[in-house]
Nucleic acid binder design. Structure first.
Length: 526
DNA sequence: TAGGTCAGCGCC
DNA sequence: AAAGGGCGCTGACCTA
């Protein structure tokens, strides 16, 4: 059974309507309490049809967790794009308007950060729209390829995972973070200004130039180096490293520490960590390829330098699992060029031994360039060698690139469709579009594998009654916070979820998708 | 003062 | 040596 559920603007009077699988109502609208929703979930665990990702926050706040769902707005986004109308509004109101031939209103702006989501004011009564749009989506999905149905289910499950990750929060030790900042930067300045070690490096830069230069200002640096006889195009660190000048060493050191201070320093800590938890908002499908985005705190760019602050609570462990070389494996499965991904754990080493004289870095560069469209320098020659040895794999990405250059759309394995091209009036624009579509087919399919894996993992843990909490997800890596005694079964569940995801996407492909969990106290531990 | 863009760099 | 895909965030800098 399916149940359309509208938690309403406050969450105290929830409204629902029971539906058949195809979305046809099989009962009248009902007004229910949170306890009644929990009882329904316990009793027959229906697939809950919700308007949008954000709605689950309110349910969680009311003590309700759901097993399975259908997220109307996420699914609408996928269907609109699949229809070649990427970018058209896909909010519930717009979808309902299209059904009745009315002009779709623009999507409302994303809700502001509001803690537990209780202040989000949506339309007063969305239940009728949810029911109608869901039924139309079920008709469309039933007509379409099976992959799209799997994608709709996985994307929807993502909304549940994302809501729960936000609710659990990533365990974050402010004291550990503060200690490593103090170690790197010196004591926190009480009245603002640069921390001592940054100030000292800025002074060394000034001395090297013999005049005041703001090391934070690219324009000033370029002028200062020009006066010293070094013409720079940019002040990127790799470019600075090539020139011989006494300011370079302190400047590079300054840049590295300044980055830590500004992006993940004390101000970040005060803004984003509360009561030992970092709670970014995960935006399902926030990236065109289907990768998730986050809002708040730059959660997908936690630098290695501060990962020691992510620590399990006493008596708990972190289970950190990342997929090894996911994208080349996805390419091997997509293209059927299975020799590209032999049954070894390190695909780059295996490739290096067979094709690149044991040079792993060459093998890695070759594969990445094949998927990104890199041609410059050594990459062009390495990709040419790949093209000779793995014609099917290369034909797959080359075909996607040609489609892009010609202005055609490309799709992921399950059917996520790329956005349309802008005007391809120059050869450079066409090539850039080709690099985008070349990468899209691989990145988007890798995102699908990760999404299905995440959904499988959540479902397995939930049905086992595991106390493990999903707390972080970053493209091809997932983290759980688990009571120590439950870590073993979580490790097993991780392996199983990876294997299941591979099968659900690619059937009985010989390509393996190893997802290797490590049980640790801190995120910095290998 | 408030808003935009750019450069730069962190992550995958 | 320094190029090729996807992002978010910061400070500098510019404009309204």
């Amino acid at each position: 059974m399916r149940v359309a559920l509208d938690p309403g603007p406050r969450g105290e009077r929830m409204r629902l309507r029971r539906l058949a699988e195809d979305g046809t109502p099989i009962g009248p609208p009902e007004t229910v309490t949170a306890a009644e929703v929990r009882a329904l979930e316990r009793g027959c665990s229906p697939r809950w049809v919700l308007a949008r990702q954000h709605r689950y926050r309110r349910l969680l706040a009311a003590g309700i967790t759901l097993g399975r769902n259908h997220d109307v707005e996420l699914v609408e986004g996928i269907l609109v794009a699949a229809d070649g109308r990427f970018g058209e509004p896909h909010g519930l109101a717009a979808a309902a308007a299209r059904l009745t031939g009315r002009e779709p209103p623009p999507d409302p702006p994303a809700p502001a950060h509001d803690g537990d989501g209780l202040f989000d004011t949506g339309p007063a009564d969305e239940l009728a729209d949810i029911v109608a749009v869901h039924a139309a989506q079920q008709r469309t999905l039933a007509r379409g390829p099976a992959g799209l149905r799997l994608l709709a289910a996985a994307e929807s499950a993502g909304a549940l995972v994302a809501g729960e990750m936000h609710a659990h929060g990533l365990p974050w030790r402010a004291d550990v973070h503060d200690a490593l900042l103090t170690e790197a930067l010196g004591p926190r300045p009480v009245h603002g200004g640069r921390p001592p070690k940054l100030a000292a490096l800025a002074e060394q830069v000034r001395e090297a130039f013999g005049r005041p230069v703001n090391p934070d200002s690219p324009a000033e640096l370029i002028r200062a180096f020009a006066r010293a006889g070094h013409e720079l195009g940019t002040t990127r660190s790799w470019e600075l490293r090539r020139i011989d000048h006494p300011a370079v060493a302190p400047l590079l050191a300054y840049k590295e520490l300044a980055r830590l201070h500004s992006a993940h320093g004390w101000s970040w800590l005060r803004t984003w960590v509360r009561d030992g938890r970092f709670r970014p908002e995960f935006v399902v499908g926030g990236v065109v390829t289907g990768r998730w985005a986050t809002r708040g705190g730059g959660a997908l760019q936690i630098p290695k330098a501060v990962r020691a602050a992510v620590r399990a609570d006493p008596g708990w462990k972190l289970v950190v699992a990342d997929a090894a070389q996911l994208e080349p494996r996805v390419l091997a499965a997509l293209s059927g060029d299975h020799r590209l991904a032999p049954g070894t754990d390190d695909l780059y080493s295996a490739l290096a031994d067979r094709e690149f004289g044991g040079d792993r870095s060459k093998a890695k560069l070759a594969l990445l360039s094949a998927m990104y469209g890199g041609t410059a320098g050594e990459a062009g020659e390495l990709v040419a060698r790949l093209r000779q040895r793995f014609p099917a794999a290369m034909a797959y990405v080359d075909g996607a690139a040609r489609d892009g250059e010609a202005g055609r759309l490309v799709r992921s394995h399950l059917g996520r469709t790329c956005p349309p091209a802008g005007p391809l009036t120059t050869a450079a624009a066409a090539r850039a579009r080709g690099r985008f579509t070349r990468n899209f087919v691989v990145q988007a399919t890798a995102a699908e594998w990760a999404l299905v894996m995440l959904a499988e993992l959540r479902a397995a843990l939930r049905s086992a009654g595991s106390p493990a909490q999903l707390v972080f997800f970053q493209h091809d890596e997932v983290m759980l916070h688990v009571p120590e005694e439950a870590a073993g079964e979580v490790v097993d569940a991780v392996h199983a979820a990876a294997a299941t995801a591979g099968r659900r996407l690619f059937g009985d492909t010989p390509v393996r998708f190893p997802l290797t969990p490590r049980v640790v106290d801190g995120y910095d531990e290998r």
